[in-house]
Computed example of a mutant assay.
Amino acid sequence: MTARRRFRGRIAGVGSGSGVRVVVGWWQESPFGPFADAMVETADGHRVLLAPTQEVADLVSTTYTFDEVRIEPVEVLAGSADDDAWVRSWGPSSPSLTLTLEVGGRTGLGQLLRLVPGRLATSPAFATLTDPVARVALRGVRTRGVAQAGRREYYGATDVREVTAMTGSFDGTDLGALAPVDPPCRFGFSSTPRRPSVTEVTTTIVETRT
């Protein structure tokens, strides 16, 4: 039997002057209800998952690879939104991580994605079609992949906005100024774009259950 699960939300990917790179997932709709999680890679390559529940940690850690998993509350404090319902300021926070992200205008890629009908853009078939393009155009980015136990995952992006500024700390150490996500994060089959950004995305997980 084949089962599908869908997660709809936004993913922010940023680098920092300290060399720490952070990926924050803010999910408005999911089988677990609304939640946020974060993946952190330090300058020396230590990869940490911050997950709000064991259930979320189990799913993410069987999709990506981490050196450490921490179960702790992850919240996102949101600022005001523009006419397209885009939040201009994010405030992801947990006992380990605090961030303030300022979100700017739509990128060139975001403008192209807005031309694709949402139903098509979020379909696994379209993610399969665009994967070879994403590999070439966006270093480290994939729109599909295979996780443990043969579980297939598809990422359907519908918009991208730039991140223009960032402040924050990880484990009490200041992250420094906003920087490119370089080198790409090594969590698994896909990273975020090199340019700090927020991507609106629908993730579809397909798995075979016996």
Rank of each mutant, 00 (worst) to 15 (best):
P52F: 02
A149F: 11
L120W: 05
T128M: 12
R144Y: 09
T128H: 10
S80L: 13
T65P: 03
P196C: 00
A127M: 06
L109A: 06
R47G: 02
D58E: 15
A51S: 02
A85P: 00
M1C: 09
E153L: 15
R114E: 14
D83Y: 12
E41N: 04
T210D: 13
F187V: 04
L77K: 11
S61C: 07
V76D: 06
S197L: 01
S191K: 09
R209Y: 06
D83R: 14
A134E: 14
V22I: 15
V48D: 01
G105H: 00
R144S: 06
V76Q: 05
G104I: 00
S16C: 10
Y155M: 14
G104A: 03
W86Q: 10
M166L: 15
Y154K: 08
V20T: 15
S169G: 14
A127C: 14
I71A: 02
P183V: 12
D58L: 14
V24D: 00
T203K: 12
R10A: 15
V24W: 00
V74L: 09
F126V: 11
R4T: 10
P124D: 00
T2I: 13
G45L: 04
A125L: 14
T192N: 10
I11L: 13
F66P: 09
V206R: 14
S94C: 11
S190W: 03
A57Y: 03
P73A: 05
V201Q: 05
F189Y: 08
H46E: 14
T208R: 14
G19Y: 07
D82A: 04
T167S: 15
A3S: 13
L178K: 07
R151L: 10
R152N: 10
A36Y: 01
R209P: 01
F189R: 02
G108D: 06
Q111V: 02
A137I: 05
V181Y: 00
A149Y: 08
R47Y: 00
R209D: 06
G79A: 11
V40A: 09
E41K: 07
E68H: 13
M166E: 02
T173H: 11
P34S: 04
T143W: 07
D83V: 12
R195T: 11
V181P: 02
V136C: 04
D171T: 07
T199H: 03
S89N: 09
P132C: 02
P117E: 04
W90Y: 15
V20P: 01
L175T: 07
P34Q: 03
A85S: 12
D37H: 11
C185Q: 14
A137T: 13
P196A: 01
I205K: 08
A121I: 08
F187R: 01
R152V: 04
T62F: 07
P52D: 03
P184Q: 04
